[in-house]
Design a binder for these strands. Structure first.
Lengths: 237, 237
DNA sequence: AGCGCATTACGTACGATGTACGTAACTACG
DNA sequence: CGTAGTTACGTACATCGTACGTAATGCGCT
């Protein structure tokens, strides 16, 4: 039975070392770290199997001994980044704790701008994802609600953070790989947009533009969104 | 000046027809429709310039007369899908209208499962995106709040819908391109997860699993998330 | 009316990607 | 000690986006 039928596989279920054969030259952590280094430096699109192998100093195809598919490499990256998440002893104030979770997640995504793009697909089963989830649940111990509701809260919080940071960084990641600057791109887009609005076809958008409440404080917008969301889960008095 | 310097460009700013030269054989709508047809049938990854050209019946490189970069093809697709959004005369009840917006968006994403993946990057400047945004603002005419707040509400609503449907469809899109079935994948993941939980390292997740409130009604979860969010914007009495 | 030139059409070609496959070296278990 | 399973890795292939060059086309100007 040399040729195995293709079967689904969770990379975390396969042991790093089976005991037989030559000692593997790298650990999963090594590989994840190399990929993260590349993504941080040159963007997610620069993470290719060849490039990661070169960073490690091994042949391209050797990587496939550790990582059956490239998608699994992504999972390693997400887990490695998740490992940077600092956890703490829950304070007893679930709202404060969840706010802190959100801010820590956001700063993590700022350090690793490729994270939002990789987090969308599926809820992680990676060790650090599980640790993170358990920690969130611990923070919510003082919230009188079912676990189902708590999970909904966590999902919603993560969703908002991801959405927000994605919009915050959407072009930043792209800027790296495009031949023109962020400012040029923005200028062109804004010019086009105000041209469209000037046609009068979008009266409310025109009013929104005219409202002009000064420069938008993205930080405050983020804070407001989180607060509103947490309020929605506050048990009624 | 034959060779132009690379400059940022919004595809919607360039006219479809400049008047000079041979009559273009296709419209943007034709191209978008072809790409959408392929993505609907075989998934987003099947949308390649070659494939779209073949679907249209023209040479691959002819496409670049209409679409300078592939990313712009994606913009055409999003706009075409957005064109399916049925708008209506606002009822005066902004909560009901926004709920309807959310449900329509969700069903649109169900019809075109590749939409969430393409919507994340940047807020659209496409004609149909602008129409959609203006419509949302119209629905919110009866909400006493600044345009800034209204835009935050719309962004949050879209974020929740996108996040929710993404999780809902995350694996569905992948299933199409993988050699094993959704059920097999799920089974493997669940088996691994319960193995981890059985270690006792995640007591709260274990409790969450044990809670077992019957099969999860995703529909209801979606509804609750939207309602909670809209409540958070209700002006205080 | 007719000339000029911008535009369309499209074949060829290049560099890059993920990864299937085959082979050689190696090590733990029977 | 042999042998089976594992690691290492070079080669090869299909596919991708797209730069470039050339031929055909038809609008706008003189």
């Amino acid at each position: 039975m040399a040729g195995r039928a293709a079967e689904p596989e969770v990379i975390w279920a396969r042991p790093e070392r089976t005991g037989r054969g030559p000692r593997p030259a790298y650990t999963r952590a090594d590989i994840a770290a190399a990929a993260v280094r590349i993504a941080d430096a040159d963007g997610l699109d620069a993470v290719s199997m060849r490039r990661v192998a070169a960073e490690l100093g091994c042949g391209t195809m050797s990587l496939y001994n550790y990582v059956p598919r490239k998608e699994d490499l992504y999972e390693l990256m997400v887990d490695a980044a998740g490992g940077e998440h600092e956890l703490w002893e829950p304070s007893g104030d679930w709202r404060a704790d969840m706010l802190l979770v959100a801010h820590r997640t956001r700063s993590l995504m700022h350090r690793h701008p490729w994270l939002p793009r990789l987090m969308s697909p599926v809820y992680g089963l990676s060790p650090n994802s599980l640790r993170y989830l358990e920690h969130c649940l611990a923070c919510l111990d003082t919230l009188p609600a079912s676990y189902g509701t708590k999970l909904e809260l966590i999902a919603m919080l993560n969703g908002i953070v991801t959405t927000y940071v994605t919009n915050e960084l959407a072009t930043a990641e792209r800027t790296r790989s495009l031949p023109w600057s962020q400012e040029q791109e923005d200028a062109v887009r804004i010019a086009y947009l105000s041209g469209r609005i000037a046609t009068g076809a979008y009266p409310r958008m025109a009013a929104a533009f005219a409202e002009d409440a000064g420069p938008i404080d993205l930080e405050a917008v983020f804070e407001r969104a989180l607060t509103r969301m947490l309020n929605a889960f506050e048990p009624r008095a």
